[in-house]
Design a protein around this nucleic acid. Structure first.
Lengths: 332, 332
DNA sequence: ATGAAAGCGCTAACAC
DNA sequence: GTGTTAGCGCTTTCAT
């Protein structure tokens, strides 16, 4: 049945007939038990409904499917206890591997699972290459891209609307903005930062209000995510400041509504799908190469999507609604 | 090990010590194979990243967890072939049950799976009660709620911005609007419908443009989803028509950005989480009751969430930002 | 209260 | 090319 070509045609047909008649469905867990192999892997993320992870999941599922693997989706709700519960479950289920964006200090359990023979790949989080494979996106470079775009016309200040620095993304994107400023030979005082407690629309509105009190005529604002940016543009509109003529605004993440906002938003896009694909490919390699496998770190480059919230850098090209992509994703 | 109380304390401790020392993890598939039972169920939906299904999933996962079951998430991407692939996989994995919002004509395979002993519950889609359990939301009632709200001030026309009637939701919500009009003793010509090909922001913008050409001074607009409504309000703003003073607008689904829109949107909320919970509860009942199980249909009632895009029906109550809920969810 | 034995559905290794 | 066999890790039953 599993090697249809190694069997006489007549027998094959006879078997097939019986399969159809009895409506036979093979018992996969039994097969896996016997063969000691499984083609099931898991993706564990804080929130599968988050567009970022949803797209990562698509990529991972597609790549896994190509290699004959299936992916089960686990959403830990950002709760370390739930995450650990899922990992325990997956361990018991004897999945062949796990793709994970850990929220808790999962490494302990993950190390044990790996010692059991379960492959592990970190997603959107760099891991020590000696321990696990990992795929991530270069957030520092993303911040740099935003800063370079905003400062290209000679603005003397760059406002950064940022979330909690405890989030690696926020810290990295700020570092990138700083680096961009440095590269252009501007003083570090060019960067003026306003911090929010959470990264949603309303805090963005409030941050913009604070900003205008301190800096009545900002030229350029970099928000470390799109929701903040939408909040900022909303307040600017209310205050009668026109975007992009008076202020240019750049967001981050390129979520779906960035293109659909009242003023379509220039943003930094992360290669989410590719992130998922690559993670799954690494995982399958890890699984199939066994102990011989050498872990590796892959870092993707983000790229700029220019829309109406910034002015055309190259006025001879029409800014299309879906956004022109500048730069190319580069696995490193 | 599975009945720690039926064993001498000393032995229990000795066993536990060995478990810890060897880092032993029980093999669940092997246990299931032997016992012929499984506590794994699946949720198959067109798009797990869709906020509606994401919330359904949360409810289902929570309810299942309470009963000791785990839920694996499958996103069929609205592709009948992928859906069927997942069902085949789940059949082979010998899951105990399946929660499904079918996109293809899955009933054939589902009937076979049920005959194999796999329980099946339809989600957000009524099933013939003789075949499967099902949970759904009353979209007709939702349309009626919207129409009643919009017509309460004596408007003589109700504009309906609707998607393709091929979608049951669109057809049902329209039917509800009609029923509302009828209830109020108004002529059926009160309803003026504009149709879009898809239910996103841009088609909403375009529909609003068409609407204003035909009806220069609409009083009330009901959009059969929130994205259409956001598009509509965007065009109205551009055209200088004020919401809600000149036109009241009601959306549907109460997605997250409905509350975050420039004009927070009045919408119809569906009890998504409860839908998932109830579906999972029915599924577990089906699984555990075995062949004795009687299938049942559960229908939830949607409710109105009033925000700034409609005027206060009861001016003495402050319209809070998160929205006042009118009406109570009612399993029927 | 504990141990021994059978067997769930399948695959791999071997003989025919 | 085809049939036979042992055994994956566990639960269940039965004997001690």
């Amino acid at each position: 049945m599993n090697n249809p070509d190694r069997v006489a045609e007549a027998t094959r047909l006879r078997v097939q007939a019986v399969i159809d008649r009895l409506d036979f469905v093979p018992n996969r867990p039994a097969a896996d038990l016997r063969s000691g192999r499984s083609r099931m892997v898991a993706l564990v993320v804080p929130d599968i409904a988050n567009p970022f992870f949803a797209e990562v999941a698509r990529g991972a599922v597609a790549a896994a499917a190509e290699q004959g693997y299936v992916v089960v989706l686990c959403s830990s709700d950002g709760d370390p206890a739930k995450e650990d519960g899922y990992l325990e479950l997956l361990d018991e289920q004897r999945v062949a591997g796990v793709l994970i964006n850990p929220v808790g200090n999962a490494p302990g359990r993950l190390s044990r699972m790996r010692d059991h023979g379960t492959s592990v790949v970190f997603v959107d989080r760099a891991a020590r290459a000696s321990e696990f494979c990992s795929v991530a996106v270069d957030d520092v470079r993303g911040g740099e891209l935003a800063a370079e775009l905003l400062l290209r016309r000679g603005a003397r200040e760059l406002v950064l609307i940022n979330g909690p620095l405890a989030l690696r993304q926020c810290a990295d994107r700020r570092k990138g903005a700083r680096r961009g400023i440095e590269r252009l030979g501007l003083p570090s005082s060019t960067l003026v930062e306003f911090r929010t407690l959470s990264m949603t629309i309303q805090p963005g509105v409030e941050a913009a209000e604070r900003m205008l009190k301190e800096i009545p005529h900002p030229r350029s604002v970099f928000c470390t995510n799109d929701l903040l940016a939408i909040g900022v543009t909303r307040w600017l509109a209310k205050a009668g400041v026109s975007v992009p003529e008076q202020v240019e605004v750049v967001g981050y993440d390129d979520i779906e509504i960035a293109a659909e906002a009242p003023i379509p938003l220039t943003s930094i896009r992360q290669p989410k799908y590719e992130l998922g694909r690559t993670a799954a490919e690494l995982l399958v390699r890890d699984i199939e190469e066994g102990p011989a496998h050498r872990h590796q770190r892959v870092v993707f480059q983000p790229h700029l999507v220019e829309r109406d919230s910034t002015m055309d850098a190259t006025p001879d090209v029409t800014s299309a609604h879906p956004g022109r992509q500048v730069g190319v994703p580069t696995p490193a």
